[in-house]
Design a protein around this nucleic acid. Structure first.
Lengths: 198, 198
DNA sequence: AACTGAAGCGGAGCGCTGTTCCGTTTAGTA
DNA sequence: TACTAAACGGAACAGCGCTCCGCTTCAGTT
C-alpha cells in the first residue's frame, strides 16, 4: 500500500515539525486512554494526557472516528494482510476463514468498546466504519468465496452481513463469563457449513 | 402475576390522583417520543411532550431503565406468555423456538435503539436488562430444553448466551438492506440444529 | 366551606460533555 | 533579526443528565 491515501494519517502532508510531533503525542496519549477508558473517552482527557489543547486534537483528527482509525490503523492493516496468508497456509479455505475471524474477534474484544461504537454510534463513527469495510470486507469476501468454491460452506452469504454480525456479537461488557462471543460465532459458522456430501 | 412487584408501575401505591394522572401522561409521552427519537431521547423532550417538569419524570421513574421498562412492559409480558402457547401449538419444539425468536426479534427491531441500549449502555439500563432476563430467560430456557429433549438441536447451549446473541444481532441502524438480522439468526439456529439421524 | 400538612410539582442550576472561535505563540524563511 | 502564516491553547457556547428547593395542589379534618 502507499504511505497514505484515505483519511489523514502519515507524517507526510505537514510542514511544521511541531505539528507532526504533536500528532504523534496525541496518538500515543489516545492509545493509552483508550485502553483504560474506552474509545469514548472524553477529548479533554486525551488532551490533558497529551499535554495539548483540545483544538489541537480536532485539528489533526476532525472526527473521533479519524482518531480511532489512526490509533488502530496498524492492527487493522495486519488483520487485512493476514487474510491471504491464512488462505495459503491453512488446511482448507474454511479453516482459513475460521482463523481469520478469530483474529478479527481478538482485535475487537481487546479494544474496550470498539465494537459497541462501530455499530451503536454508527453516525459518529461512520468514517471508522467505512475504513473497516474498505480494508476488511474484500478480505472476508475472498475467504468466503474460496470456501464456497471448494464446497465447504453454502453459497449466498453476504460478506457485509457476516462481518457485521460478527462485530455485533462482540458487543457488550467484557468479562461476563456467561457470554462468550466465540461460542456463538462458532455456531454461526456451523450453520454456514455444508458437509462435503451434500 | 401480582399487580406489581419489581419496579414501580401499576397505579396502586399512590394516594393522590394527580400523581397517577401524571404517571400515565408521562408514559404516553415517552412512548410517542421513543418511536421518533429512540429510547435515548432527552428527558427534557419527554417532559415537554408530556407538559410536565423533568423532576416529575424522575420522581415516577428514577432511572431511564424504569421508564423504558414501564413503556414496554406489556409487550415484554406478551412475548413471555407466548412461549408456552407456541410450544403447545407449533409442529415441533424447534419450530416453537423459531417462532418465539421471531416474536422477540420483531419486538426488538421495531423499538428504535432498544437493542443498542440493552447491550451497549449496559450500566445505565441495568434494570431493564434484568427485567428482560427475569421474564424472558425462563421462557427461552423452556423452549430450548424442549427442543433438546426431542433431539431437534444439540444440547449445551446456554439460554442467556443465545438470547444475548440474538439481541446483539439486532443492534444497528434500521433499514440497511445489506444487513438483515433474521438471516444471521436463522444461520445460528441452523448451527444449533441437529438432524434426527445424528 | 375553610383550613392545613404534606405530597407533588416545575424549572433553575450544577457538572460534564462535544465543538468552535480567536487572540497568542512559534517555526521556518529571508 | 524580522516577518508571516501555521499551529496552538483554552475560554466560551450548546446540549445533556440529574438534583434541589420554593411553590402549588390535593385530600382529609373540623
Amino acid at each position: 500500500m502507499t504511505t497514505d491515501s484515505p483519511a489523514g494519517q502519515s507524517p507526510s502532508r505537514s510542514k511544521r515539525a511541531d505539528a507532526q510531533r504533536n500528532r504523534q503525542t496525541v496518538l500515543a496519549a489516545a492509545a493509552e486512554v483508550f485502553v483504560t477508558s474506552g474509545v469514548d473517552a472524553p477529548i479533554r482527557q486525551i488532551a490533558a494526557r497529551a499535554g495539548v489543547g483540545m483544538a489541537t486534537i480536532y485539528r489533526h483528527f476532525p472526527t473521533r472516528a479519524d482518531l480511532v482509525t489512526a490509533v488502530y490503523r496498524h492492527q487493522i492493516e495486519a488483520c487485512a494482510e493476514a487474510g491471504p496468508n491464512l488462505l495459503a497456509s491453512a488446511d482448507s479455505p474454511l479453516d482459513a476463514l475460521r482463523q481469520w475471524i478469530d483474529l478479527f474477534v481478538d482485535f475487537l474484544v481487546t479494544k474496550h468498546g470498539l465494537a459497541d461504537a462501530l455499530q451503536s454510534d454508527h453516525d459518529r463513527f461512520a468514517a471508522l466504519h467505512a475504513y473497516f469495510l474498505d480494508r476488511l470486507l474484500p478480505v472476508c469476501a475472498q475467504l468466503l468465496d474460496a470456501a464456497v468454491e471448494v464446497g465447504d460452506i453454502r453459497p449466498g452469504t453476504q460478506p457485509y452481513e457476516l462481518m457485521r454480525g460478527i462485530g455485533n456479537l462482540c458487543i457488550g461488557r467484557d468479562n461476563d463469563p456467561r457470554y462468550e462471543p466465540r461460542r456463538l460465532i462458532a455456531l454461526l459458522l456451523q450453520g454456514l457449513h455444508r458437509p462435503h456430501s451434500a
